[in-house]
Design a protein around this nucleic acid. Sequence first.
DNA 1: ATAAAAAATGTCAAAAAATTACATTTTTCT
DNA 2: AGAAAAATGTAATTTTTTGACATTTTTTAT
Lengths: 291, 291
Amino acid sequence: MPNICYIRMNILEKITQSKAAFSKSEKKVAEVILANPQTAIHSSIATLAKMSDVSEPTVNRFCRRLDTKGFPDFKLHLAQSLANGTPYVNRHVDENDSPDEYTNKIFESTMASLEVARQSVDVNVVNRVVDLLTQAQKISFFGLGASASVAHDALNKFFRFNVPVVYFEDILMQRMSCMNCSDGDVVVLISHTGRTKSLVEIAQIARMNDATVVGITSADSPLAQECSYVLSLEVPEDTDMYMPMASRIAQLTLIDVLATGFTLRRGNKFRENLKRVKDTLRGSRYEKRNE
Amino acid sequence: MPNICYIRMNILEKITQSKAAFSKSEKKVAEVILANPQTAIHSSIATLAKMSDVSEPTVNRFCRRLDTKGFPDFKLHLAQSLANGTPYVNRHVDENDSPDEYTNKIFESTMASLEVARQSVDVNVVNRVVDLLTQAQKISFFGLGASASVAHDALNKFFRFNVPVVYFEDILMQRMSCMNCSDGDVVVLISHTGRTKSLVEIAQIARMNDATVVGITSADSPLAQECSYVLSLEVPEDTDMYMPMASRIAQLTLIDVLATGFTLRRGNKFRENLKRVKDTLRGSRYEKRNE
DNA sequence: ATAAAAAATGTCAAAAAATTACATTTTTCT
DNA sequence: AGAAAAATGTAATTTTTTGACATTTTTTAT
C-alpha cells in the first residue's frame, strides 16, 4: 500500500528511482539524460542513441519503460520536469538527510500538499460558510492537539473583525460554551482525522442547541457526519509519521480564505475598521526606521 | 516597484501578445492552441493543421514566428509553459473577486511565499539551532498576536519529544518565565515584524539570565539584534493588508523543519518514543474502519 | 480601378525522425 | 552445458517534419 500519493511524478526523479529496474543499456541512456537533461530534450533519438552508445530502439524502449508513449512523449515529460524548477512533490524525509535536504523536502512537501488541498476545496461550501459567518451572532473555534493552534489562529483573525469570537483549549470549557449556544451561533470545529471523540461530542452538543456546526476535517469522518457543513481538505499523507504537518498548514490557509471572504463580504466600511485595529497595535511597536 | 517578478516569458502569453503580428491563418492556429494547449502538445503538426484548418507548413511557419526552431521545438516550449500551471505568483485579492478567485489567489500566494521563504532560509543557522534545541535543558516558545498561535503550535510539536517545553500567551508570564532562565535554556521568540516592544524586552531578559535566544523574525529588526541566533524568513508582502497570512505559514513550516531536524538528530530510539506518544492518543479516537 | 509587387498560403516531394519487425547476441536458469 | 528468456541491434517501414515551389490573396503605386 503506497502511502505517498505522487501528484505527478517528476520524470527525472522517476529515472533515478527506476534505475534498479533498468537493463545495462538502459542505464547508459539514463546516465546520459541525467547528466545533461537540457541537451536531451533538444536531441533526436538518433543523437541520444549515439551519445549513449546504444541503438535507437533501445532509447525508445527506455522511454516506454517510463510509461511514456515514445520518444517524443518522453521529451515532453522531460521538458515539463525541467521547466520552472519542478512541480513540488511530496518527498519523505530520510534518516540520513542533511539539514539542507530535509529543509527543502519539508518546504516542498508543504507546497505540494497545499496544491492538492487547493484542488480539493469545495468553493460552494466556502461561499456558504462565509455567508454563515458574516451573519453569525457568535463564532466559536475549537480544536484539540495540533488543531488547537489552528483554532487559536482563527481566533486571532476573526477577533479583528469585531465580532464575538470564542476559543477554548479546554474540553470542558468547550462543552460548556456549546451548551450555551443558540440559534445564529456558528461553531467551527477543526480536526484533521475527524475521529477525536470529544470533538464529535461537542459537535452533537452544539447542534442540539441550534448552533450551526462547520467542520474543517476529512470527509466521511465521524465528525463530518455530525456537522451541518463540512469543509474537507484532502491532504496527502503527512511527511512525518508522527506529527501532523501539512494538514495544519492547509487548515490555516483555509482559515485565511474564510477570513478573506468575510472581509470582502463586509465591504469597504468594514475594512476601515480593520485598519483602525491595526493602527492600535502601532503603539506597542518600535517604529520602522525609514529606508 | 513591481513586487511580482516574472521569471521567464511564458510562450502562451507570448502567443496572446503577438496576436497582432499574426497573419489570418496564423491566428487560426493561435486560437486552436490557446483553446486547448494540452491537446496541442500531444498532436502532430498534421493534426494541428487539420484542427486549425490550415496547411502543415503554415503551422510550421507559425512556430518559427515565435522564435522556435520548428514544430517540435515549439511543442517543447509549450510543454514547459504548461508544466505546473505557471510558477505561483503572489496575487493580491481584489474587492470583486468571486469565492473561486480569492480562494485560488490565497492558496497560490501562500505557495509563492513559501517558495521565497524556502530560498531565504539559512541552512547553517537551522543546523546550529537544531543543535541547540537537542541540547537544551528547557525550551520556551513565545509569540504575541498572530505569532502566538505559531508558538502554540511549536509547543504542540516539541511537547511530544518529551523535553521540558514552555509556552505562555501572557506577557507577564513570559517575562517571569524568562527571569527564571539559566544556562542551557533556549528561548525561541517569534515575531514577523520583530518590532513588538515587549518581545524585544523579553529577549533582553532571557539573555541577561544566560539563556540562548533564537529569533524567528525578520533580519535587522530590533528583535533580531537582541537574539543570539536569528532565523530570518523573507516573506513577500502579505496578501491581505491588515492580517499576517503568509508570514505565519512560513514560520510554521520553519518550526516543522526544526522539529524534523530535532527528531533526526535524536535518532531511532527516540522516534520509537514518539510512536508511543501517538499510540496513547488512540484511546481518545474513534477507530478508523477498515477500507 | 488596375497592374505590379509583395505577402500569405497551399501542394507535393524530400528529408528527418521515430517506430516496428525480426535477427542476433547476451544473460539466466535448470 | 544447453535451452529458454531477456536484451540488444539491424534494417525496413511508417510517421512526422521541413523545404521548394506554385498558387492565391493582399497591398501598393499609378
